[in-house]
Simulated scan of single mutants.
Amino acid sequence: MPAKDIYHNAVKNALKKENWYITNDPFILKWGARDLYIDLGAQKLIAAEKSGQKIAVEVKSFIGASPVADLENALGQYILYYDILSRLEPDRRLYLAIRQETYSELFQEPIGKILIENQRLCLLVFDSEREVIREWIP
């Protein structure tokens, strides 16, 4: 099993603060002979419904030497997880969790904006110190 990202618990706590129930830690995707591990699976029950919103969250720290290399790696992982998850659990939405600083520094410039504009990924932007979610995109 892969090591947890340094912000794993911060995201987990932020989700709990917004009344998400953590269903999987990690969320295991079985595809063929391979097992893949998304950091978290969560569900939020909606009043008067047995089933509610379901998400899977991949946490990325973006603390490497190159933010672009970190983005390339995260995007490749996200696409792989997205394609498999859409077959196994099409009602579960995949999010890439990133720090507020990463969002401000990388996703507010053209290289990150194009990914958001083209709806290539869903982002969960969090404050790592306060352990709260700042924004869901889209």
Rank of each mutant, 00 (worst) to 15 (best):
Q100N: 15
Y95M: 07
A48W: 11
I111H: 09
S61T: 05
F107E: 01
Q43V: 13
A47Q: 10
I98F: 01
Y78K: 01
L71Y: 01
D91Y: 10
Y82V: 00
D83M: 13
Q108K: 14
P90T: 09
Y81W: 06
L40K: 05
Q100F: 12
G64V: 00
I46D: 04
I79F: 14
L88T: 06
D70W: 04
A48K: 14
L88V: 12
Y103W: 12
L88K: 12
P67F: 13
L45D: 02
S104Y: 06
I84T: 04
N73K: 15
V68M: 14
S51W: 08
K54A: 07
D91V: 12
L85C: 00
I98P: 03
L80M: 13
Y103Q: 10
D39N: 10
I38S: 02
K60I: 01
L45Y: 06
D91T: 15
R92S: 06
S61D: 04
L71S: 00
R93M: 13
S61K: 04
R87P: 01
G64N: 01
G41P: 02
K44S: 09
K44D: 05
P90F: 11
S61A: 08
I79S: 13
I55W: 09
Q100C: 10
Y103L: 10
I111Q: 13
D70S: 08
Q77S: 09
S61N: 04
D70Q: 02
L94P: 13
F62W: 06
S104M: 14
K60F: 05
V57M: 07
A42Y: 03
E49M: 05
A42G: 12
G112Q: 04
L94Q: 09
L94Y: 11
K50H: 07
S61M: 01
L85Y: 04
E58C: 05
D70P: 02
S51L: 15
Y81C: 03
T102D: 02
N73Y: 11
V57I: 10
T102C: 03
I111T: 15
G41Y: 06
A48I: 10
F107W: 06
Q100T: 15
L106C: 13
A48E: 14
E49N: 11
A97R: 07
D91S: 15
I38R: 04
A74S: 09
L80R: 15
F62G: 07
L75C: 03
A97Y: 11
I111K: 12
I84E: 00
L45N: 08
I79H: 10
E49L: 10
I111D: 06
Q77T: 06
E72V: 09
A56F: 02
E58W: 05
S51F: 14
E72L: 14
L106N: 03
P110M: 15
K50M: 11
G76K: 12
K113I: 09
S104K: 14
E105W: 05
D91E: 15
E49R: 09
I84Q: 03
P90Y: 07
P90L: 10
L96M: 15
